[in-house]
């Protein structure tokens, strides 16, 4: 799969706005299998908006995004089959135990046990998540990355936040392992991450000025909501 379709995700001239404010414009990059892209920028620069656009959960963007050569939003059903997204909201339900949470994501019991053990949650498998700390809940969410059936495209919003030193190195190891197996990752992080090959995108380089904002709409052709 990786060799004949080198670019899984292609972003062409992407501009995002939110609440009438232009976040960034003219962003283009390609993501090949076995590669990672780190999105950097100040708070409010649009990192999360970019990730949410990439997963198809934000409608107001202009430009083109292609998944396996097919453009959004047509490609979204196929994208969802290959996507693992972890956002600010972890997707962990407090009323379930870590094991049950992972089972809800389709993990087998053995795989879930192993993943939780790797993330230092051994002994907490059957505790309700609402009784765990914030950091432990974060690790329950990240345990999805350690399941054997992990999908090829990972989109991670601040995966290293709220982790201790051991957790960070464990997760970096897993991300490197994912790349070495031909997977690909788009993630945001404030801290440097040791991954190769890693492409870094500074959102500040694509900050939208007023002129660009005017230019987008000048023709009055912006028919779509």
């Amino acid at each position: 799969m990786p060799s004949n379709s080198p670019h899984l995700l292609q972003v062409r001239d992407l501009s995002c706005e939110r609440d009438g404010r232009d976040l960034f414009a003219g962003l283009s990059f390609d993501l090949a299998s076995g590669c990672a892209v780190q999105i950097e920028g100040a708070n409010g620069a649009g990192k999360t908006s970019l990730l949410r656009t990439l997963i198809g959960s934000a409608a107001d963007f202009s430009g083109e995004i292609l998944w396996n050569g097919e453009s959004y939003p047509k490609a979204l059903p196929k994208l969802r089959e290959s996507l693992l997204y972890i956002g600010h909201r972890a997707g962990v339900r407090g009323g379930l135990t870590p094991l049950e949470n992972l089972a809800w994501y389709g993990a087998s019991r053995d795989a879930a046990y192993r993943a939780l053990e790797l993330l230092d949650l051994y002994g907490f498998e059957d505790t309700l998540c609402q009784q765990l700390s914030a950091g432990q809940n974060r690790r329950v969410a990240l345990a999805r990355l350690f399941l054997p059936e992990a999908p090829p495209l990972w989109i991670l919003d601040e995966p290293l936040a709220a982790l201790d030193v051991a957790g960070v190195s464990c997760l970096q190891g897993q991300m490197a392992c994912h790349l070495s197996r031909g997977g690909s990752i788009v993630f945001t992080s404030h801290q440097p991450v040791g991954l190769t090959p890693l492409q870094s995108i500074q959102l500040a380089d694509y900050a939208a000025g007023d002129t660009v904002a005017g230019g987008v709409f000048v023709g009055g052709e912006d028919v779509h909501a």
């Binding site: 379930l96 049950e100 089972a103 992990a150």
Partner: peptide
């Protein structure tokens, strides 16, 4: 770390039974 197989390319989704039981 290399306990994992290569990415399968398809994400496993829980079936209706799992959804219902969890709820």
């Amino acid at each position: 770390m290399s306990m994992l197989d290569a990415p399968t390319g398809r994400r496993v989704a829980p079936g209706f039974g799992v959804l219902f039981k969890t709820e």
